[in-house]
Design a protein around this nucleic acid. Structure first.
Length: 812
DNA sequence: ATGGGGCTGCTTTTT
DNA sequence: GCAGCCCCAT
């Protein structure tokens, strides 16, 4: 290579580095590395999504520009000098980006890029950020294949429905439908639920599908104990159940969630022609949250990303330390074994993103220290350029109620002092059962809060019923949904009749609906033939009208003609909310119609099945948020509380019993919890706690012990002897149940406690002065225990609420 | 068919 | 502690 050529390449790379100056070196490396398999180990808060999006944009704009060593044959001294000058020239980012266009090598059209995520939210975010990166061309984000594993597989299955043995308009069963089907299967096979529960049978079936093992293979592989089945008899039972369950679903022209991945992957494995079609289409495959994948998903992405000559353009990004979904099938070995499992030329490479853009160093040190106790991981150490940051506050309340009070108090003080907004705070707990005490604590205070993870809209009975009607109209074979609505409202079709129908359907290998439609031909159904035929005629009538109606009007029609709306109206005033929910559903239908090119019932139902609730976390509302640690994954908050850091809760009793691998998963959960915090972290462990109706004296969590003491701001307390707490300051409780400053004092030991200044009481209408906020008008005064809460409208900074003890106020 | 009483069991969640 | 489920009585 000549000198000029070398200078050309150096100048080109310098220009790219300048264009991507906002990224750190590791991140840039990840963007430039586009050919061959790549594993990006992205620590918490390391800018993972940014890299994913920038890399996609880079592939579309520049192809393999950076790493390619090609030099134009006619390059001259003058060209190189011009490039070298450009690296320091005054240029906007857009100008620079356009200049880089000349280096493009095989830029890739968007429709040849596949980006897979786990949630619709994540897929939506990628699309939105791609759209923002190409403001002049909205086709880019439209054409990219960005979706969840399930939506991508559905796209394949929709196209090759017959090839996997389904008919158009097939149903997708959610967990609830699947459980109903499984319960029925167990009953059919005369298996006692106590011997084999529907829950564990479903879990076993789900694990089998995760490993791409169908019912036939399952039966054959029965000796291979890979799933931890205790005994052979149980395995044989499960084999029978699996097969019967699968048959039941097929006859319903239905799939469960696992089937979506299973059937799509199988199709690609077994049908070379179809497989080649997709392989030729996709030049680059990207997978997010790779630590949450299972074997089937690994295989799916491996196949789709395979290029000619044993090359894989597959980038996966994830963090083995944040693998917390083993219980739903995720297998940490997939990310840990990625480089060995993908045999490719060039070989798989690993890039680590360890610079954290979220937390203070003490928080990262604590997280690093805890996770370092795990054996099964790829070592990483998070660091930040952020300087300073306070130590981790440890709270040691007496019980779960005092824990809630302490948290509420701290939040109130910080907001009153103007240090934070309510929305800055998150309370993250291990188990939902903890939420009761916490919620009560918040409900009794003036602190606005939101609980995440209640009953979801789509889980409401009336919504499920309406969807079931629509499903049966769309797919008459759907047995689970048919059974759900056949007697809702009451149609006098009882269990005995249905059992007779089911028996005939079984004998004739047909569907319940078919048998019911021809009920008059069967002696066994003679008495109820009219009712049964009345029902099928109702459904068929609606189906016939479907092509001629607008979808939203059709749904209204369904509500009226089935008598469902009337049934709820008859139920009276108390059911008004359910009517509202049905209307809400209709407006969801309208919303879908607005966004769809050619709206159909089938497509609507499919989206409805695959999309849970629309963005349940709204971070604009100014309220403290309460949720499980699991649901907080991927989120961040300036102030984080972690209540229940106790043995028996976190790690939970069952986890400790289950073994070392489970304990490591629990530790990863602790790591996720700690790394949610940006500025301050509060860890609480109550001396005793009532959970599930039992009061337990819990020692502090081993995870707390794993944090070096110098990172902690401990309350003045010694070791616990069976839950006996050495309390520091005496507590006083106000009438409203607040522990005014008492609880907070314990967490500020080590720092001088806020001086108890004489409280001057002000009345609404008084003009006051505050050191930070200037002058203002007192709007209201509210007694809070031994203290007062002022609401003050400041002339310059707006209205603030503050506790009298902490507000440095003087009367004007 | 419906509702009340007693019993169990019970991390974590998205698709 | 409580929700959800089964069973039995009406």
């Amino acid at each position: 290579m000549t000198d000029i050529q070398k200078r050309y390449l150096t100048a080109k790379r310098a220009l790219f580095d300048r264009y991507y100056a906002r990224l750190n070196e590791r991140q840039r490396e990840a963007v430039y590395h586009i050919n061959g398999p790549l594993l990006i180990l992205a620590g918490a808060g390391s800018g993972k999504t940014t890299v994913l999006v920038e890399r996609i944009a880079y592939i579309i704009r520049y192809g393999d520009a950076y790493r390619n060593n090609a030099v134009p044959f006619d390059i001259g001294e003058r060209d190189v000098t011009a490039l070298e000058h450009a690296a320091t020239a005054d240029m906007s980012r857009e100008e620079l980006g356009a200049l880089l266009g000349q280096f493009a090598v095989d830029p890739c059209p968007p429709w040849r890029i596949l980006a897979i995520t786990f949630t619709n939210k994540a897929a939506g975010e990628i699309k939105a950020r791609i759209a923002a990166a190409f403001p002049q061309d909205e086709t880019v984000s439209r054409d990219i294949w960005a979706g969840t594993f399930h939506s991508v597989c559905m796209r394949i299955l929709r196209r090759y429905t017959a090839e996997v043995g389904l008919q158009a308009g097939f149903s997708v069963y959610d967990t609830d439908d699947a459980k109903k089907a499984m319960t029925a299967v167990l009953k059919d096979l005369n298996i006692d639920e106590k011997v084999l529960s529907a829950k564990s049978a479903l879990a076993a079936v789900s694990r089998a599908k995760d490993h791409l093992i169908g019912p036939e293979e399952f039966e054959m592989q029965i000796e291979n104990d890979d799933f931890g089945f205790v005994d052979d008899y149980r395995k044989k039972q499960i084999a029978k159940v699996y097969s019967a369950y699968q048959t039941r679903l097929r006859r319903s022209n239905a799939l469960d969630f696992d089937d979506i991945i299973f059937y799509a992957t199988r199709l690609l494995q077994q049908n070379e022609g179809i497989c080649a079609l997709y392989q030729n289409q996709f030049r680059y495959v990207l997978v997010d949250e790779y630590q949450d994948t299972n074997y089937a998903q690994f295989e799916l992405t491996r196949i789709l990303s395979q290029m000619p000559r044993e090359t894989y353009n597959l980038m996966v990004v994830g963090d083995d330390d944040q693998s917390i979904y083993k219980f739903r099938g995720a297998d940490i070995k997939i990310i840990l074994g990625f480089t060995e499992k993908i045999k490719s030329t060039p070989k798989a490479e690993i890039i680590r993103l360890e610079q954290n853009y979220r937390s203070t160093q003490p928080i990262l040190d604590a997280a690093n220290a805890v996770i370092a106790h795990n054996e099964t991981r790829r070592p990483k150490t998070l660091w930040t350029e952020r300087r300073g940051g306070s130590r981790i506050h440890v709270l040691n309340p007496k019980d779960q109620n005092e824990e809630a009070r302490a948290i509420v108090d701290i939040i109130q003080q910080k907001v009153a002092n103007g240090e934070n907004h309510y929305r800055d705070f998150a309370v993250l707990f291990r188990v939902n059962a903890q939420s009761n005490a916490l919620e009560q604590g918040f409900a009794r205070s003036a602190v606005p809060y939101r609980m995440l993870g209640g009953v979801r809209f789509s889980d409401r009975k009336e919504i499920r019923d309406l969807v079931a009607y629509l499903q049966v109209i769309n797919n008459h074979a759907d047995r689970e949904r048919l059974l759900r609505i056949i007697n809702e409202p009451r149609r006098k079709i009882g269990d005995k009749t249905l059992a007779a129908v089911a028996e005939i359907a079984e004998a004739e290998h047909t569907t319940l609906f078919e048998v019911m439609a021809r009920a008059d031909r069967y002696i066994a159904l003679a008495r109820s033939a009219d009712t049964l035929k009345g029902f099928t005629a109702l459904i068929e009538g609606l189906s016939a009208d479907l092509p001629y109606a607008k979808l939203d009007e059709f749904v209204e029609e369904v509500l009226d003609r089935t008598g469902y709306r009337q049934m709820i109206k008859d139920a009276g005033e108390t059911e008004a909310e359910r009517l509202d929910n049905l209307e809400e559903f209709v407006s969801n239908v309208k919303e879908y119609m607005n966004g769809a090119e050619a709206p159909t019932l089938t497509e609507f139902l499919e989206i409805n099945a695959l999309v849970a609730d629309v963005d349940r976390y709204d971070d604009t509302a100014d309220a403290v948020v309460l949720m499980t640690i699991h649901s907080a994954k991927g989120l961040e908050f300036p102030q984080v509380f972690l209540p229940g850091f106790e043995e028996g809760i976190f790690p939970g009793m069952q986890t400790v019993m289950a073994g070392p691998a489970e304990l490591e998963e629990e530790r990863r959960l602790a790591y996720v919890a700690i790394t949610r915090a940006k500025d301050e972290l509060y860890i609480a462990h109550a001396a005793s706690r009532m959970l599930y109706g039992r009061t337990m004296p819990n020692p502090p969590s081993r995870f707390l012990d794993e944090i070096p003491p110098e990172l902690l701001q401990q309350p003045k307390t010694t070791k616990y002897a069976h839950g006996e707490t050495a309390q520091a300051a005496p507590r006083r409780y106000g009438k409203t149940g607040f522990s005014a400053p008492g609880a907070a004092e314990r967490i500020t030991v080590g720092r001088p406690a806020p001086a108890a200044r004489p409280t001057v009481t002000f009345a609404p209408g008084d003009r006051v002065h505050h050191n930070n906020f200037g002058d203002g008008l007192v709007l209201s005064v509210q007694r809070m225990g031994a203290d007062y809460l002022y609401e003050i409208a400041f002339d310059t900074v707006g209205t603030k609420r503050m506790m009298a003890t902490y507000a440095k106020l003087t009367k004007l």
